[in-house]
Nucleic acid binder design. Sequence first.
DNA 1: GAGTGGTCTAGACCACGCC
DNA 2: GCGTGGTCTAGACCACTCG
Lengths: 229, 229
Amino acid sequence: MSATYRDIKADILGKITRGEWKPGSLIPSELELAEVYGAARATVNRAMRELAEEGIIERKRKSGSRVRLSPLRQARFDIPVIRHQIEEQGRAYRYALVRSEVIEAPDWLCARLSLPGGARVRHLTCLHFADGTPWLHEDRWINLTLLPRAEAADFSAMGPTEWLVTQIPFSAVEISISATAADATLAAHLDCAVGEPLLMTERLTHWDGQTVTYVRLVHRPGHRMTTRY
Amino acid sequence: MSATYRDIKADILGKITRGEWKPGSLIPSELELAEVYGAARATVNRAMRELAEEGIIERKRKSGSRVRLSPLRQARFDIPVIRHQIEEQGRAYRYALVRSEVIEAPDWLCARLSLPGGARVRHLTCLHFADGTPWLHEDRWINLTLLPRAEAADFSAMGPTEWLVTQIPFSAVEISISATAADATLAAHLDCAVGEPLLMTERLTHWDGQTVTYVRLVHRPGHRMTTRY
DNA sequence: GAGTGGTCTAGACCACGCC
DNA sequence: GCGTGGTCTAGACCACTCG
């Protein structure tokens, strides 16, 4: 009798995946579908809206809704808390602080963070292990002008990522993924050969228009980021 | 007077980013917020639902909604159509078919695609250029058992990706990102040194429970995937 | 049991975008 | 203009879950 928005969404998605409604073709209007399914228009609207958000259909006022030609626009990757990611695999997590210093930001960092020359930053190098083998190398820079508390904080037991989420309420983030070659330091820390290709994630965290912290995470050799949709 | 769900969402997000509502703390119920904002509960519900989808808050029946402790769960990356990605930069797109063959799937491919031994596949190697410089190397395998039309298709002018979207209505996809080292072939095609670290995207496309196609996209040296949220 | 979110309805008005 | 999606409302019932 009463179709839920999930039923309707699944049914429409079925018609698309089975090829009954082909890419580029027009889908009946919300009013028509509401009648077909015996539901309110708001219910049909929610089903269609979610399909649009997922990149399966395109909607335009007056012209109606169409099945998208290229079936997708975006992929979502989970950003795990490192400790959880490792523990979910049933492996033991261990954290180690390798190096900690307070310095004047080098030029490349000033450029990256839009900092004035001579700004002081805390620079940390940390390692994350899974069952004793290196999992992730973390190079973290914290802007002390914006977060002076970071100068005195103790990162020997708690990693900077975990500490930072307790300090910064919420923030705009820019994430970048690329490939890099292991230099001597990375090779030693990640237990791999110099020159080995490694997956690198960089994150810039903004707050109130300024950059609070920059982190460069280099994953163990062979690491993959995977997602389904 | 009348607050839209966008207004409400922005206002709540503001309270969270400004630290008025701290991570872990309880947010007023929908009913209370509806009164505060002078809106219907459905309107508040939509604002809160979207904040939950974006990983900003957590909701549970009876216990209510809380600001998440770790402010995020996922990042979205746009999956561009290569041609568009290049043309949006104001650069000229060019496609080239490097190699095409129909073969029995090698063992590693059978394993990856859950194919029976001896299954025939079409294997294509293509290059995508931006302003004449190599942008992306594409290694594509198409399961001919599921898509026999692919055997006769001509990929000299149209890339397999563009052709496939016209053939497969919609599909489940698995995406994987990793770092790889350039071998001699890749180095020649992408005009870089052997051993250079390169970002690789792999995609498995399923249809009706079976794998239709597998593609390995290797990006030009220094390529970054970037997103904000 | 009772509070909270999850969803549906019927109706309404608005905004965009073709014609 | 007018059709389509975008959103809001007021009210309702249900489902989960905590005490």
